[in-house]
Amino acid sequence: MSENTAVSKPDARDDAALQPPVDVIEDTSGITLYADLAGVPKDKLHLHVEGDALTIEGEIDLEMPEGMESSHAEVGLARYRRVFTLSKELDASKVAAEFKNGVLKLSIPKAEHAQPRKVQVKVM
């Protein structure tokens, strides 16, 4: 998927996508996001940050025998998509991603200036 697909408005049918379940955990160093993207091979996973929007997109690619007819489908679309808004203390340029067995792990560190520091409380 090219960059400009996000800009040009695709028609409604192309726009339909599954919303992958996620876990978002925050600690002092930053935010860790896990997303379940079963059936997406590594080369069909697309991550991009534009401004403060983080987009996770993936296309499901299953091996299917020729002439297979579906009789029951709980996963009825072949695409995942979810967009998150990043807050400004996060450093989007240092996002680290791991993708294994259909699980994406994103580590988004906090910017240097937003790292925790102890605030001295003065007793007057």
Binding site: G67, S70, S71, E74, G102
Partner: peptide, 26 residues
């Protein structure tokens, strides 16, 4: 069992039955 884990798709051909269980991270 919509929303159950793992989500499942079932299909078939003349020669086989195909079951896909979406179980990431297992």
């Amino acid at each position: 069992a919509r929303g159950g884990f793992p989500a499942m798709n079932v299909g078939g051909t003349a020669k086989s039955v195909e079951i896909y269980a979406f179980a990431p991270g297992v």
